[in-house]
């Protein structure tokens, strides 16, 4: 009797698991489908934007080679380096801003603290590109919309507003017991030392999270880059370049290279994530004991 019951419970679990796994498999296929398609397209040997078969008929790496060798019309390597430079600089700046502001709002008490947080909340409700044209004219007045200064302009644009998105990091800092700070103060630490020696090492996951998000937004941004770069093709970022490849004059010969470019831009993000993900585990395992 008991054995039979066990048997049926086991069977039931097996059936349940099977159903769950089938559903998960279907969902996984749906989710991965567009990515697989882009990767396949980037290796497709047939030209053109439209194909009647899902799987390419023949494969080639020419699309990647073309991105890096055919630079007279669309200079992909230059765009890649422009974007990388801008993204790395604004990543460093905005990570610093976000963490510093979050630390201040979490640990220090000052008169503007509440009003600042409310203001940031309200400003954060508006989409950033609302101020786009105003930002453009301010940068123009400063003479930063021509030549290499465009890079600096973009770095400022991407990192300037970073201090408004402190909420997540501040929430994390709030969970670190204030007693740790007090102990450090008693031992003679300055605020800066507490921030760099104690709070940051205890908050690795949020540091990683902040770094990743502040790298990705300039890396993927299109709209600000488009407005600020205008006709300066030597300053174009990847997003503008990829968009150009889809214009009616270029789409037929550049479409597969466009897919190759889309694959390539995911590499720095993936590399950054892989490098940093071990700290996720370190951080989450918890350093604050007892």
């Amino acid at each position: 009797m008991a054995g039979k019951k066990m048997h049926s419970a086991k069977r039931k679990r097996f059936i349940n698991n099977t159903i769950v796994h089938v559903i998960l498999a279907i969902l996984a296929v749906i989710w991965v489908f567009p990515i697989v398609w882009v990767v396949l397209t980037s290796f497709r040997a047939e030209k053109g934007s439209y194909v009647s078969t899902f799987l390419p008929q023949s494969f080639t790496i020419d699309n990647y080679v073309k991105l890096f060798t055919d630079t007279t019309i669309l200079n992909f390597p230059q765009m890649f380096m422009n974007t990388l430079f801008i993204a790395v600089c604004s990543c460093i700046l905005s990570t610093f801003y976000v963490l510093a502001v979050s630390y201040c709002l979490s640990r220090l008490r000052f008169k503007m603290r509440k009003p600042y947080m409310n203001m940031a909340m309200i400003l954060g409700l508006f989409p950033g590109f609302m101020s786009m044209i105003a930002v453009y004219f301010i940068l123009k007045a400063l003479g930063m919309t021509e030549g290499n200064l465009i890079k600096l302009a973009l770095i400022l644009v991407y990192s300037g507003g970073a201090a408004l998105s402190f909420q997540i990091a501040k929430g994390f800092f709030d969970t670190i017991p204030i007693a740790v700070d007090e102990a450090a103060l008693l031992d003679g630490c300055t605020r800066w030392q507490i921030f760099t020696r104690i709070t940051l090492p205890l908050s690795k996951p949020i540091v990683i999270y902040t770094t990743l998000t502040s790298f990705m937004s300039p890396w993927l941004d299109f709209i600000f880059a488009k407005v600020i770069c205008r006709a300066n093709s030597d300053q174009y970022t990847i997003a503008i370049g990829l968009w150009k490849m889809l214009e009616k004059e270029y789409i037929d010969s550049w479409y597969t290279s466009f897919a190759a470019g889309a694959v390539l831009i995911s590499i720095p993000i993936a590399a950054l994530f892989l490098y940093m993900q071990r700290y996720y585990v370190d951080g989450l395992s918890g350093a604050v004991k007892g």
């Binding site: 047939e46 030209k47 053109g48 439209y50 009647s52 009616k248 037929d252 010969s253």
Partner: peptide, 26 residues
């Protein structure tokens, strides 16, 4: 639509299409 005309011309399933001088070389 979305480049199906020129793709059809390429694989032979279409014999005539309407477009401008920008597609002449292809």
């Amino acid at each position: 639509d979305l480049g199906s005309g020129i793709a059809g011309l390429r694989d032979g399933s279409i014999n005539a299409m309407f477009t401008g001088s920008w597609d002449a070389n292809a």
